[in-house]
Amino acid sequence: MHPIAETIQARFPDGFLSAQEWRGDLAVTVKREALHAIGRFLKDDPAMDCDYIVHVSSVDWPDEEERFEVVYEVYSIRHRHRIRVKTRVPEHDCYVDSLTDIWPGAEFMEREVFDMMGIRFNNHPDMRRILMPDDFPEGYPLRKDFPLQGKGWRDSFDFLNEGATS
């Protein structure tokens, strides 16, 4: 296992779940209860020193019990290493602790995750939609079960369809 993953495992034996390395990327899967503490550790520990937040993302696995995966990717400018921290949340209890207090940039990225996937973040200063309108009623667009086909506004232009069907 990658030394960084080993360090995390040693520090957080309960929170650490697994580590994967593929194509040179290190990804660590942790329990969501431990996410905040691990984030704090990655930021503050001099050996980690991950001061730069790269992105926060989310993946939807509708067939799995813990449906959503929240992905944080952080980077250390000094040590030049990149760590991806992933955690899973079930759909009925869709909360993760926000890491905004550790990396302020997480605010916008987490808002985007909330907007697109519907995962909420505890202690987030401003948990609102960001790209979709605030009153967007139709759910979360990047979920796999978001309806793809609908009667869009283009369908109301008869002339566009006339040619195609006649």
Binding site: H55, V59, V71, G105
Partner: peptide, 19 residues
């Protein structure tokens, strides 16, 4: 792709705008 996330600098930079 099953999921494709774009880390776009403009978006992230806008996060620091208020600050």
């Amino acid at each position: 792709p099953y999921r494709l996330k774009i880390r776009s600098p403009s978006f992230i930079h806008m996060g620091a705008f208020d600050f």
